[in-house]
Design a binder for these strands. Structure first.
Lengths: 325, 325
DNA sequence: AAGACAAATGTAAACGTTTATCACAAGGAG
DNA sequence: CTCCTTGTGATAAACGTTTACATTTGTCTT
């Protein structure tokens, strides 16, 4: 593989000149530029980014994302958006999925310290809270909040309020909430708390169920959903903490002959692509993936470039009306 | 940030010795090993992988995956599996999503040539067939086949046969196929062709519809599905080329009051997680994501290590019976 | 006690860049 | 004619490793 040396030789100049041509720096005659560029073409030269990064203590232009498994559509949509934003800024995305794997998580901070990576985005709550104690590397959290680390999150509080108000407005009098998709995290509790508060204020009875980590891993919420339907046959409205949970509610009720939305109204959270494909199409609280991603990459890039960032950015959510309520 | 130099100074040895301790190479006294390891601990030393990779013309231990957008669950599941396999082998996964973006695709091969990346996996058919002409880099294709490039694919032919036979065995007499999720690619045509051949052999009428690239991008297949139902009200069995398409069939029929599977039987392809969550749960031809991933990373690693690989590996598919047929 | 041999450690070149510094020529001002 | 710019280009050090080779130290033979 051709190196800068080869290009220099072929163009009849020194490697410094070649470098200057590449980086458009210093004074250069048009003739020299042409010679060098021709040589590069002819040799199909590609600069070695490793050497580049090593030399000028430059960046590797790679950002890592530590995420929960992508089978969960929330994460795959988030990642797609993040990758797009990053690419626009000239960065690449390295993905590390982890489910409660502390080893793998700690590995991440090593990655940054080994200079292969310029920064770290954490999507979803990691198993070890103190993952990067004393490692001052550029880092941001999305839809999760860790002590001392800047984060970008959706307005979960507002989402919970909207869900409750909407179900009540549509006539529900016995509500259920299935929460806890991101179980560690106080962030997702906000959805639950806000929902409960509105119910209490409106004097509507409301029961809260929690899903477990195992359910998230397997994306199998049938157990909670069945229990919920068995214990609360009088329920006429469900607020699910994710569209996947909502899908399970709709599926189980469907198999039991309960009609949605006539007998039971269901509202989800996230507004992932598949929400539209459900039967009936799912009404849900929509997260703004584009904005979430945008703010996140902006925040990480700022840190990389040494600027300071606000600790907490909140992105509005929206009610997406379809046919399950 | 501490370098090998700092460790050497603190341990009172030369940098070569430190390097030897790290790489367990050459003869070392127990005492020296201890001294060096202590120094590394105390300085919280992390070797610079950039320098490492540059030096021994070693690998960067990063593999890139060029994929269609991850919102499509086939890709998110595939990627999750690939990332797991790669991680087990000590490699990291860099993701590049592209939808018909030739610039971005060509960028990929540059990445490899710039040494930041050891190899390239292509998932799904790229826009430019000749993406890596004359660039002899380690490369593999999954569920796509490009001239001269080793590939790992599911047994689409067998899948088409199984789908047809199963629908017919269940009593269908008017079949429809909606195909083309991976439209360029002759690989997915195999599903269609095999399906048609079985139908012809069994004298069952069969109509084929094609989805378009735009539908894949937006994951919105409502147009074809509606047209299909309008033009073929007599259809009693549908073979969809992906679970997402099948989901759309089930959704649209549901909204029209057509009962699945009583009036219309639907079989999908892929067996992504969401297939289980549909209403009714989807019967589908399952791809073995684990095996697909396993073979793919094996193949790319072999190439990186200079071994030769077979050009084509075919992974069996299985019929997953649920309740839509 | 000297020589041989192995074990332990050090030295320095290399990997492919960037960049500060230096060298040299041409041209203008005095 | 000398001195100083100004435009060009080359040289070499640095980035943090690995590793071939050289050197030192120590032990064992005899």
């Amino acid at each position: 593989m051709a190196s800068i040396r080869d290009v220099a030789d072929r163009a009849g100049v020194s490697i410094a000149t070649v470098s200057r041509v590449m980086n458009r720096r210093g004074a250069l005659s048009e003739k020299t530029i042409q010679k060098v560029q021709n040589a590069m073409k002819e040799l199909n030269y590609q600069p070695n980014d490793l050497a580049r990064a090593l030399s000028g203590k430059k960046e590797s232009k790679i950002i890592a994302l530590l995420s929960l498994p992508l089978q969960h559509p929330f994460y795959s949509e988030l990642i797609t958006s993040i990758e797009e934003c990053l690419f626009r800024e000239g960065y690449k995305l390295l993905i590390i999925t982890s489910f409660e794997d502390i080893m793998k998580e700690e590995n991440c901070v090593n990655l940054v310290q080994s200079h292969m990576i310029d920064g770290l985005i954490i999507g979803g709550h990691p198993a070890s809270e103190r993952i990067l104690e004393g490692s001052p590397i550029p880092i941001v959290t999305v839809e999760a909040s860790l002590p001392e680390i800047p984060c970008v999150i959706s307005d979960n509080n507002q989402g919970g309020i909207m869900a409750a108000k909407y179900l009540i407005a549509k006539g529900c009098r016995h509500l259920v909430h299935i929460g806890g998709d991101m179980h560690h995290e106080s962030e997702s509790d906000r959805r639950t708390r806000a929902f409960e508060e509105v119910c209490a204020a409106e004097h509507i009875p409301c029961t809260v169920y929690e899903s477990t980590a195992g359910m998230l891993r397997n994306m199998d919420y049938s157990a909670v959903v069945s229990r919920m339907l068995f214990e609360h046959p009088e329920a006429d409205g469900v607020f699910a903490s994710s569209d996947v949970i909502a899908a399970e509610v709709i599926r189980v009720t469907g198999s039991m002959g309960i009609r949605v939305p006539d007998q039971l109204k269901v509202i989800g959270f996230d507004n992932v692509r598949m929400a539209r494909l459900m039967n009936p199409p799912l009404t849900t609280i929509g997260q703004d993936f584009g904005e979430l991603a945008q703010q996140t990459v902006q925040k990480i890039l700022k840190q990389i470039h040494g600027e300071t960032v606000e600790m907490r950015t909140v992105i509005p959510v929206t009610l997406v009306e379809r046919q399950s309520v």
